[in-house]
Each structure stands twice: as C-alpha cells, then as structure tokens.
Design a protein around this nucleic acid. Structure first.
Lengths: 252, 252
DNA sequence: CGGACATTTGACAAGCTTCAAGAGAAGTGG
DNA sequence: CCACTTCTCTTGAAGCTTGTCAAATGTCCG
C-alpha cells in the first residue's frame, strides 16, 4: 500500500497549528479572521479512500476544507457514465456550489484517505457579514475552481486524446508542485487510469493506450504511485497549456 | 435582420428604472444596496453582434452585468480550435473570474447586439466590505455559473452528439423561459450552428446532421431565429438532464 | 494458492471529423 | 432590379480517432 504525503494526519484541533498554513502557500490571514474560522469550524472528519463525502443527489449540510489527501468532484448520467469535474487537493474548499445552485448536483469522492475540516453551511452568511475579507476569499476560491473546470471543458471539447493527457499531467503536477508536494522532480499520483479516463472524457482502453504512447515517447513516467514529467516542454507544447505563475491562494 | 427581444434598449440611467428588476425573475434588493449598486456602476456600454467584449489574453478592468442580448464565454487553443464555455443572458454577471484567477483566461463575445452596465473592478472589495449581502450574491452567481460549466463538461465528456444537442436545447430554453422570454412556446435563438458546435465540442458538419435528425424526429424546430421544443419529454429523456425548479437569482 | 483489481494489448466496429460542393438567404453595389 | 459576394445551412463520401469487446498479464492481499 503506497502512502501519500498529502494524507498524513487529521486536522489539528487548533487552526493556529494548521500544517497547511505553515507551508507559505496560502495567503496569511489576520488573527481575528483566524479566530473566527476556528469558531466557525464545526469539527473534523476523515473519509476512506474510495468513500463518498457528498452524494450526488443528496446535498450535504456542510462545507469542507480539504486538509490532506486527494478527492474529486463528479457528475454521472443515469446509465452510469461518469465525468470527473475536477480534482480536489489540500487547501481546496468543498461544497460551495451545493450551498447555492440548487440544481447542478455533483458528488465528492475520496481518492486516497482524506481528512477535512467541516463548517456548518448556515454559518456562511454570518461569515460574509462579520468578515467580508473571508467572503471575498471564498469568492476567489469559487472563481478559481471555475477556471479549472473551464480548462477541463476546453480539453474535453477540443483537445484530442494525447493533448488531453498531456494537459492533465501538467495541470496536476503544477498544482502539487505549488503545494510543495514535489520531491526529486516527482509528485504523488494516487489516481488510476479509470480516474484519468473519467476526467478526460475518454474510454479506459484508449486512455491506457495514450498514456502508454506518451510514456514510450519519454514524456513522462507513472510508477509506484508517483508521476515524473520527463519532458515538461514537450508536454506543454502538446497540451498548448500555459498557466499563470504561482500565486498565494486563500485558505478557509 | 431578426430583432431579438432581449436586445431592446440600452440600460436606463437609474437602476430603479431597470427593466430587469421589474420582471420578478430576480431577488429583490434593499434600497441601500440598490443605491450602492447605482453609485458603484461606472457606466453603460453596448457591443455589436459578433464584437468582443473581453479579449482572451487581455483581462478587462471592469465587471459587467449583461442587460440585454446574448453573449458567450470561450477559450481557444493556439491553432484556433474554440470552445464555448457557457452562454450569457440578461442578468448574468461578467468578468468575475478575471478579477481573481490570474490564469485561466477566457474571452467574451457578443452573439447579438448587447448592452451592459459596467462596474470598476477596484470597487469590488468595497462592495464586499460595505454590503456583505451583495458579496454573498456575487458568490451565488459565481457558483451558479460554475454549475453551468459543470453541466457542459458532463456533456462534452460523456454524452454523444444527439444527447449533447438535446441537452443544450433544453438548457437554453429553460433559461430563457425563466427570464420570461418565451412566447407562444418558442424562444429567441440567435446562435448559429457554429456556436452550437463550439459549445458541444463537435464539428460543424456533425452538429448539422445531428440537429437535422432531431428536428426530423419532431423533437424541436429552429426557424427564423426562434426555437420550439416540440417534444420536451423526449428531449429530456434523451439528454438525461433534470434541472432544479426555477428560483430567483441575484442581480447586480 | 485463489480472488479481486488495475494495466495492457489486439481486433473490430462505430461515431465523428474532414473534405468537397451545392443550395438558400441576405446584403451590396452597379 | 439584378448580378455578385458572403454567410449559413445542407448533404455525401471517405478516413481516422476513439469506443467496445475480449482476453492476457501483473500485482496485491487474504
């Protein structure tokens, strides 16, 4: 069983001791806001790898911040076809859309064991009222996530199989790198080919053949639950994907 | 030249006289907030059909509320392949992501002549601070738009051509209906088959053949710039698309 | 060793794209 | 008023990408 760095321990009881905030990846937050976040938090929980955090049809009464591990948002058609909308990594806010758009249901499933902080959804308005800067941050996070879905839609709609794979590998590698989860040029990579297929809108078989081809071309290696980008430039050209430079992101 | 209801006149000078707010489609807003919105607004503008409101590479310094007409958000690959992310209809807020996610650029293009209210992007923080309820509304709108992109991603990734077309026709019809823009069972439909193809991730030719087929099956008719859903139930089954009941939405 | 699951490969079918070209509608200018 | 251009819609044919079916291999774990 491969262990993943990002899983590690459950959230600490105090936000002041939060491992994520010490990474320097997230925007610093004033003491008053931090205190509010801690009082706002209703608890922590963990979900096993493969478990469902939010059911597609049944909205959750909570918001979550992913503390450790990988998860994904998805939608399914009634005959079982599944589309992964985007992956969730440590620091991501979960469940915001459920609070708002009454329709547009989606589920959240854990890839690895995950640990989360939970917040009561009723408290969200209070947060906006008492700490507008946190409300602003939440809007920031929502816009950022939408940007990721935009990218995936461009892939699914207009890129061919090889380009989609290249795009996804680049995208995930960059996100993990920014989180400080890269080691020796590789990042943890707990998803399987079915996840990749469901993300890219491809069949499992074709995803496998495409991954194989790119790997044999020496563009990347996936082994032992880790991903190496051996030729990032070629991948970038192939995917036609040029992201903005890293930037600190808010953390609730 | 077909005239579209939703185009009509440019925005009135006073928000109190706003045609959109009289429709009953949007959530009522308190007098203080309305006053702030009006003072926040930096002006109005119009863009011709086919014109570009926001260039893909060059973020705009403004936010907009679409007052009349149709527009769309899109991204392109460097070789010209274009993906429409979602359509913008009266009442939609435009340009929020640009404010936040520094990467993830997208453009906005007018389908019909459009008229808009413009807001300075620097004022957004002030809005959150002084009127948290408006900040909350903006987050609501952001989450709602993400939900639409989610739906489109499910289509592009997992639905076949006929299902995608059915889904899009249902989706647009519903949105227009909720805006009170349905007349005699039909809605204005100013987009052409290239727009549809770029939305669904299909080629123009295949889009045409699929539209033709559904129309000959008696599911819908598109004629004279209007859309009729002749068999909504069949379309709904085909698309496997069940939206939430209408609900009032915020309007900035 | 046996079972469950992920990966891999080949063969074939199907859906979709591309290429090519014609028809119809609308606007332009002589 | 009519040629002319432009744009959109339409249709057929051929080819390629991707999906489906089937089965083998490998790995992990009980």
């Amino acid at each position: 069983m491969t262990r993943y760095l990002s899983e590690s321990a459950p959230c600490p009881p105090a936000c002041a001791a939060c491992r994520l905030r010490r990474t320097g990846v997230f925007t610093p937050v004033a003491a008053a806001e931090l205190e509010f976040i801690e009082s706002f938090r209703s608890g922590t929980l963990t979900v096993q790898a493969g478990g469902t955090l939010i059911h597609e049809q049944k909205p959750s009464g909570k918001l979550f911040t992913l503390y450790g591990g990988w998860a994904f948002r998805y939608k399914t058609l009634s005959d079982g076809r599944r589309q992964i909308l985007n992956f969730l990594l440590p620091g991501d806010l979960i469940g915001l859309q459920q609070e708002f758009s009454d329709g547009a249901m989606h589920g959240i499933e854990a890839v690895t064991d995950i640990s989360l902080c939970a917040f009561p959804r009723e408290g969200l308005w209070e947060l906006f009222r008492r700490h507008p800067s946190l409300g602003y941050d939440i809007t920031w996070l929502a816009a950022r996530e939408e940007g990721m879905v935009d990218d995936n839609l461009l892939s699914a709609g207009r890129r061919n199989a090889a380009e989609r794979v290249a795009m996804l590998l680049m995208h995930l590698h960059r996100r993990l790198e920014r989180l400080g989860l890269a080691q020796d040029g590789s990042v943890e990579f707990p998803i399987n080919q079915q996840h990749i297929a469901d993300t890219l809108g491809l069949s499992l078989v074709h995803t496998n053949k495409t991954l194989r081809r790119l790997q044999q071309l020496g563009l990347h290696v996936i082994r032992d639950g880790r991903l190496w980008l051996l030729n990032p430039q070629a991948l970038q050209r192939l995917a036609d994907y040029y992201d903005a430079p890293p930037r600190k992101v808010p953390l609730l």
